[in-house]
């Protein structure tokens, strides 16, 4: 399989949580393709369902509907959500995850060595000890951990180093896809840059595919090839990064972009205000979910659900007026 082929096809994922008779649609009908070696950024505000989507894709949650078509390393096309246990055992290790909180994602009762070792032992129970040790050492060195510290417990490490341990654990099985759920959000700015650079280097070296979930638009813009914007459980726009940031086609994306604080006091971009508040996901509005807060709202938007269509090549958007509206994005250099 060569670089750039489609590796994952997320199709019509729905995720409903119900408790006490109330059903909340955390994710509604999300589809997008992922190509090998790409980084897909998923952005949105808290409660938009981006984390749930990520967890559905790695099958930490069982989605209510939909499929994740995955092309395995052997070139087989399977539905990751419906495979049997036997295949799952083989494929599981190819899709891994990096977590947001570097504190709760490492078991404080295990040494770093044991944490990184755990996935190997679970997948290759017969591997000799020396080989396991070698593998752990190699991967620890790769992510920039001092290998003489492996016998330490996680409490000996700072947030940034802990995140490196988490990355090492995710990488030790040689996965092809990694879902990074807010992987740098909890870190300090200077440490964020270190981890982003590390993720970048690892991608180059191993040809990894990232699904980068974050609320931080500037990080996503930096790291992603394509970006999907989510609102109230729906994917409202999906496009190549530059395309999306320069020419957003969904009014929500436009507002979101205008709200990003720029680290330059001379640039005072005018914000496009969002009216009202995010509606209750248990009781979403009719028609277009965004119509209650959209400044371009028409009668049609209130009644008909807009379709999620490829408006321009590779630029998907779910808005009735996407064609006619001229929305404002960022000005790119050059």
């Amino acid at each position: 399989m060569s670089k750039g082929d489609q590796i994952l096809d997320v199709r019509n994922i729905h995720m409903r949580f119900s408790s006490k008779g109330i059903t909340v649609k955390a994710v509604t009908d999300v589809s997008f393709p992922v190509h090998e070696g790409e980084t897909i950024g998923i952005v949105g505000e808290s409660g938009c369902g981006k984390t749930t989507l990520g967890r559905c894709i790695v099958r930490a949650y069982e989605p209510s509907e939909g499929s994740v078509m995955y092309t395995t390393s052997e070139g087989e096309l399977i539905d990751f959500l419906k495979i049997d246990k036997q295949t799952m055992k083989k494929v599981r290790k190819e899709i891994q995850m990096i977590f947001q909180d570097p504190y709760s994602s490492l078991d404080p009762r295990m040494t770093v060595f044991d944490i990184i070792k755990e996935p190997i032992v679970a997948n290759y129970p017969k591997m000799p000890k020396a080989e396991i040790e070698q593998k752990v050492m190699d991967i620890a060195a790769k992510v920039g951990l001092n290998t003489s510290y492996l016998k330490r417990y996680p409490h000996a490490f700072s947030g940034g180093q802990r995140q490196r341990i988490g990355i090492a654990r995710a990488l030790v099985l040689n996965p092809r896809i990694i879902v990074c759920d807010e992987a740098v959000s909890a870190l300090d700015v200077s440490i964020q840059a270190q981890v982003i650079n590390l993720l970048h280097d690892l991608q180059k070296e191993f040809g990894l595919t990232y699904l980068f979930i974050s609320h931080d638009l500037s990080v996503v813009e930096y790291i992603s090839d394509k970006v999907g914007v989510m609102y109230l459980g729906k994917m409202v726009e999906f496009a190549p990064t530059k395309n999306l940031f320069e020419h957003p086609m969904h009014p929500y994306t436009e507002s979101l972009l205008s709200a990003v604080p720029i680290a330059d006091p001379t640039v005072q971009n005018e914000r496009i205000p969002l009216e009202g508040e995010i509606p209750n996901p248990a009781n979403p509005p009719s028609g277009c979910f965004f119509h209650t807060r959209c400044r371009y709202c028409t009668e049609k938007c209130k009644n008909a659900v807009p379709e999620y269509v490829e408006m321009e090549p590779e630029h998907y958007v779910a808005c009735h007026r996407a064609q006619e509206l001229k929305l404002r994005g960022f000005k790119y250099d050059e």
Binding site: V58, Q96, A170
Partner: peptide
């Protein structure tokens, strides 16, 4: 906890 999910995703029984 996240570390339990991590173990699950790593294929730990």
């Amino acid at each position: 906890e996240d570390f339990v999910m991590a173990a699950k995703l790593a294929g730990v029984s």
